[in-house]
C-alpha cells in the first residue's frame, strides 16, 4: 500500500489502459464512418444553396405544410407500435419460455418475419391488401365475405391506414423485441419463480411481482432499441401507399433525396429534416432512459 514500486505503478497504468485500447478501434471507426457523414450533414443543414450560413433550412422545414402531419403520424405510430409490440412480444416470450414440446420449433416460426427482406415483405402485403388480393381471397374461402363484398384495406380514413401500417409493421418487428425479452426470461432462475408460487401467488401475481421486475434491464434494452427504430419508420409506408400520402419524418428525408432531388430546395430540406429527426430520436431516447431509471441503476448493472 505504502510505496508501490515504479514498475508496479507502470503495470497498473498499463492494465488501466487495456479497456481503452480495446475500445479504441470502435472509436476510430465511428469517427471515420459515422461522425464524418454526420458532421457533414450538420454543417449542410446550416448552409444555403450558395454556401453561406443560414437558419433558413430549419425555418423551411418547420413551415413545410407536411411537417406537422409528419410529426403527428410519427408520434402516433411510435406510441402505438412500441406499446403494442411490447405487449405482444412479452406474451410470446412468456409462452415460449414455458418450454412446451415443440417450443423450439414455434420459436423458429415466430422468428421468420424478422428474417424477411423488405422487398419480400412489400410484395407480400401489396398482393395481400389489394381488393382482389390473398387476404380477401382467404376470407372468401372461409366464407367470411361474399364474392361481391370485398374489403378495401388500404382505402378510407387516415386513422384506418395508420392502424393498418402499425399492424403490418408489428408483424415484422415483434420477433426482434421478443427474442430480447425471451433471453431475459431465460436468465431468471426457475427457483425464484417457483418460490413465488410456493408463497401462494397465482400466475398473474408472480408475473407482476417477480418476473417483470426481474426483467427490468431487459425490458429497458428491448424498448429503447425499438423506440429508436420506430421513430425512423418509413419504408413499409412507402411500399404500401407511396410517398407523400402518409408523411412521416424519415420518409420526408428520403422524399427530398430520392423522389424530387431536382428541386432547388431538396438538399436543404433533406439535411434540415435529418438533423431534426436525429434530435427527436435522441431526446425521446434520453427521456425514456431517464423515466425508466436507467441512469440510477447503471452502477449495479455494471456488476
Amino acid at each position: 500500500m505504502t510505496a508501490a514500486s515504479p514498475a508496479k505503478r507502470f503495470r497498473d497504468l498499463g492494465s488501466k489502459a487495456v479497456p481503452y485500447l480495446l475500445i479504441l478501434p470502435v472509436v476510430v471507426y465511428y469517427f471515420l464512418f459515422w461522425l464524418r457523414p454526420v458532421l457533414k450533414t450538420l454543417i449542410d443543414s446550416f448552409r444555403t444553396a450558395a454556401g453561406g450560413f443560414t437558419f433558413q433550412n430549419y425555418i423551411m422545414v418547420f413551415t413545410d405544410p407536411n411537417f406537422m402531419p409528419a410529426l403527428r403520424n410519427t408520434a402516433i405510430i411510435v406510441v402505438f407500435s412500441v406499446s403494442l409490440e411490447f405487449i405482444a412480444a412479452l406474451f410470446l416470450a412468456l409462452l415460449i419460455n414455458r418450454k412446451f414440446f415443440g417450443s423450439s420449433l414455434f420459436l423458429f416460426v415466430a422468428m421468420i418475419p424478422m428474417a424477411l427482406p423488405a422487398v419480400a415483405v412489400g410484395a407480400m402485403w401489396l398482393t395481400g391488401l389489394t381488393a382482389h388480393g390473398w387476404m380477401n381471397s382467404l376470407l372468401y374461402y372461409l366464407n367470411i365475405i361474399a364474392e361481391s363484398h370485398k374489403i378495401y384495406w388500404l382505402t378510407g380514413s387516415e386513422w384506418k391506414l395508420l392502424a393498418l401500417i402499425i399492424v403490418v409493421d408489428a408483424w415484422q418487428v415483434i420477433p426482434s423485441v421478443m427474442i430480447i425479452l425471451l433471453a431475459g426470461l431465460q436468465n431468471i432462475p426457475e427457483e425464484t419463480i417457483e418460490a413465488g408460487y410456493v408463497f401462494g401467488g397465482d400466475y398473474l401475481t408472480v408475473l407482476r411481482k417477480i418476473t417483470v421486475p426481474l426483467l427490468g434491464p431487459t425490458i429497458q434494452t428491448a424498448v429503447i432499441l425499438r423506440l429508436i427504430s420506430a421513430i425512423q419508420i418509413w419504408l413499409i409506408i412507402v411500399l404500401l401507399v407511396g410517398f407523400s400520402r402518409m408523411p412521416v419524418l424519415v420518409e420526408r428525408i428520403v422524399y427530398y433525396h430520392e423522389e424530387v432531388p431536382g428541386l432547388d430546395i431538396s438538399f436543404q430540406m433533406a439535411s434540415g429534416y435529418t438533423i431534426i429527426v436525429s434530435l427527436i430520436v435522441s431526446t425521446a431516447a434520453l427521456l425514456y432512459l431517464r423515466a425508466s431509471g436507467a441512469f440510477g441503476s447503471k452502477k449495479e448493472a455494471a456488476r
Partner: peptide
C-alpha cells in the same frame, strides 16, 4: 454506442 443508432441510416449513406 446507442447514440450512433439514432441518426437515420439513409441520411448517413448520402454523404458517404
Amino acid at each position: 454506442v446507442l447514440f450512433v443508432r439514432m441518426f437515420p441510416g439513409v441520411a448517413i449513406a448520402l454523404p458517404m
